[in-house]
Every structure is written in C-alpha cells, then in structure tokens.
Amino acid sequence: MSSIRQQPFRTAVLVLVWGWLLFLVLAPNLLVVGASVMTRDPGSFLSLPLNLDAYRQLMDPLYLDVFLHSLYMAAVTTLACLLIGYPFAWALSKVEKRRQLLLIFFLIVPFWTNSLVRTYALKLILATNGLINSALLSLGWIDEPVRMLYTEGAVIIGLVYLLLPFMILPLYSVFDDLREELVMASHDLGAGRFATFVHVIVPLTLPGVLAGVMLVLLPAMGLFFVPDILGGSRNLLVGNVIKNQFLDARNWPFGAAASIVLTLTMAVLMLAHRISKQRIGEEGSA
C-alpha cells in the first residue's frame, strides 16, 4: 500500500494502537477465557481437558450468594454515588467557569494518593476507637463506641468514597453540555421545574448517568481490598472471590470464569449506554 510510505506517522500510530489492543487487551482476555474452560491443576495451575466445570461451580448457591450480595452492595454504592453525584455535578456546572476547574482539581487530588492508603485512613476514622467514635464520646452524644468497622455499611462507605469521582466526572460532562436555552425553552412552553426536570434534564443527562453507573457498578464489585480492610469476612465482593481463587485457593479456572461473568455484565451495561446515547442523538440541535 502506498499510504504506508506516504504517512509513516499515521502508520506508526495505528500499529501502536492495534498492537496495544491485540497484546494487552485481546490476548489477556482470550487467556482468561481459555483458563476458564480448563481444568484445575495443583502443580501447573491449569491442565486439560476442557470443560465447563468452573461455570457450573459458579451456580453453586454459596457463590451465587456472594455474587448477589456483592451485586447488592455495588448497587447501593452506585445509587449513593448517583444521589450525591447528580446534584453535585449539576451545581458544579452552574459555578463560574474558573472556579469549576479548581473544584474539579480538588475532586481529582485524592487520586494522587494510593487508594489502599486512603482506605486505611478510612479505617482509622471508622474504628471503635477511631475519629468519629472519639468525637462522639467526648461530646457526650454516645456512651459507648458505635460499631462501624467490619460492617456492610463500612464497605459501602469505602466504596462510595473511592468511586464517587467516577460518577461525578461523566455527569459533570453532560451537565456542562446541557444548553441553558433548552431549560429556558421548556419553561417558556409552560413546564414548571419538576416537569422540566423529568422531560428535559433527565433524558438529556441520561448518557452521563449510565456512564457513571458503568464506571462505579463494575469496580464496586471488584475492589477486593475494600472489604479486606473494612468489611471483615462476611461482606465479600466478587473481586474477593476472584482474588482468592487465583492467590489462595489456586483454582484458576474458577477465578477466570467469575472474572468473565463480571466482564459480560460490563458489556451489557455498555450496550445499554450506547442505545440510550443513540436515542438522544450525537449532537444537540444547534
């Protein structure tokens, strides 16, 4: 092809992108798929023959319970992030442009600290002799420490704390794109605040909601170190199961199968996101 000689930079970029996708995305995922249909082997981790035992094992009520409980905690986390993030992003988009950048900067600053460290910090705050309990005790509002650590609530607080920015940023992006003229047009045509919210603002920010849900729900099922630090033994995530299968139980096929189910869940969500975006149209009416 003559274009290769004519556009060496373009070719280099394409090779890099495709190479990256092939070797660092497609190949590892294919390896995981391969691992999930192989047999567990104590010596070399994996062996033939191929079978679907790992997937059958996922149907085990014990793991189904873990999966459902994990899904439940992730759903609560996502809902909490949405309830906090939606008004937050809306308000953020109303702030004067220069302040907006500063506020977004503050939102991103915590990322500079390792999330493991931040989770330990949260542990210090929630612990029996932690910051909150000491404060409440010294104020005389409670007589004995409230148990917060190693509860489902603690895990959810941890997940919300870590994942909230991932909800706010895509929401901020759609609110930033939402043209004030459309809201004015809705009022002009006789719609009050609530009707405008339901008929104009929600539909137009839905892609941001779905993007935020995608960015929060899936990681919320996978961030295994949060229950490890804050949740005790009962509040496991799918991420914990996967991690345990690979590192402790040495059951790679089962871990791989669990991981694939998680990936497929993500794919379904992305499809929903795409459809909702197509319904709204790529571009505003201007």
């Binding site: 459309l182 047009a185 009050g192 505003g284 009416s285 201007a286």
Partner: peptide
C-alpha cells in the same frame, strides 16, 4: 410571574429544539 405562567412564547436564537 415565572416564564411558564406567561401567555407568550419565545423563538430562541439557536432554536433550542429538544434533541431527544
């Protein structure tokens, strides 16, 4: 009176049609 209560309507500069 808020805009929704006024018996008049506006044609906006950039039309402001609801894209969805």
């Amino acid at each position: 009176t808020p805009p929704e209560g006024r018996p008049l309507n506006t044609v906006f500069q950039h039309y402001a049609l609801f894209p969805h």
